[in-house]
Simulated scan of single mutants.
Amino acid sequence: MSLLDRIAADVDELVAIRRDLHAHPEIGFEETRTSAIVAQRLEAWGIEVHRGIGRTGIVGILTGRGTSARRIGLRADMDALPIEEATNLPYRSTKPGTMHACGHDGHTTMLLGAARYLSQTRDFDGTAVFIFQPAEEGLGGARAMLADRLFERFPCDEVYGLHNQPNGQHGRLSIRRGPAMAAADFFDIRITGRGAHAAQPNRGIDPVVIQAALVQALQAVVSRNTDPIHSAVLSITRVQAGAAYNVIPEEAQLAGTIRTFDDGVRAMVSQRLRETCAGIAAAFGAEITVEIQDVFSVLRNSDVQTAAALEVATELFGPEKVDADPEPKMGSEDFADMLLAVPGAYAWLGGKAGAALHNAAYDFDDSIIPLGSAYLARLVERRSAAGL
Rank of each mutant, 00 (worst) to 15 (best):
I175A: 07
V304M: 10
I229N: 06
G178W: 12
A255F: 08
F186H: 05
Q240F: 06
F284I: 02
G171I: 13
D294G: 05
V265R: 01
N202Y: 14
A281T: 05
R194N: 09
L273I: 00
R300G: 04
N301S: 13
P207F: 10
I175C: 15
T226M: 10
A198I: 06
I205N: 02
H197V: 08
G242P: 00
L173P: 01
T257N: 12
I229R: 12
P179M: 09
D188G: 09
G264L: 14
G256R: 04
N301G: 12
Q216L: 15
I210E: 06
L299I: 10
A282T: 14
D206Y: 09
A267K: 14
G264S: 11
G256I: 05
G279A: 11
S231D: 11
G204R: 05
F296T: 07
S235D: 04
A196H: 09
G256Y: 03
I205L: 15
G195H: 10
G256K: 06
Q271P: 01
I248L: 15
F296E: 02
A196M: 12
R176G: 06
E250P: 00
V233G: 00
S297V: 03
L218E: 06
I189Y: 01
R224C: 12
A244N: 08
L299V: 09
T257S: 15
V290R: 01
S223D: 11
F296A: 07
V298A: 08
G279Y: 07
G256E: 10
A252C: 10
P207L: 13
D188M: 02
V209E: 11
R259W: 01
G178R: 07
A252H: 01
L273D: 00
R172D: 03
Q271G: 04
M181W: 06
S270H: 01
G195I: 05
T276A: 02
Q293I: 03
A252V: 04
L214K: 02
I191E: 00
Q216M: 15
A252P: 02
I236A: 03
A278W: 05
S270V: 04
I205F: 02
I248F: 13
A196Y: 10
A281C: 08
A243M: 09
V265W: 01
L218V: 08
D206E: 12
Q211G: 09
V304A: 14
S223N: 06
A281M: 07
T289H: 02
G171Y: 04
G264I: 02
D188W: 05
G204P: 11
V265E: 10
P249R: 08
Q253C: 13
D188L: 07
F187T: 06
L299E: 06
V247R: 13
M181K: 06
D303V: 15
R177K: 14
N246V: 11
D263K: 08
G204S: 11
R194V: 15
M181D: 05
D185P: 07
T289L: 02
G242Y: 07
G242I: 08
V239S: 09
L234Q: 09
Q293S: 12
T192A: 12
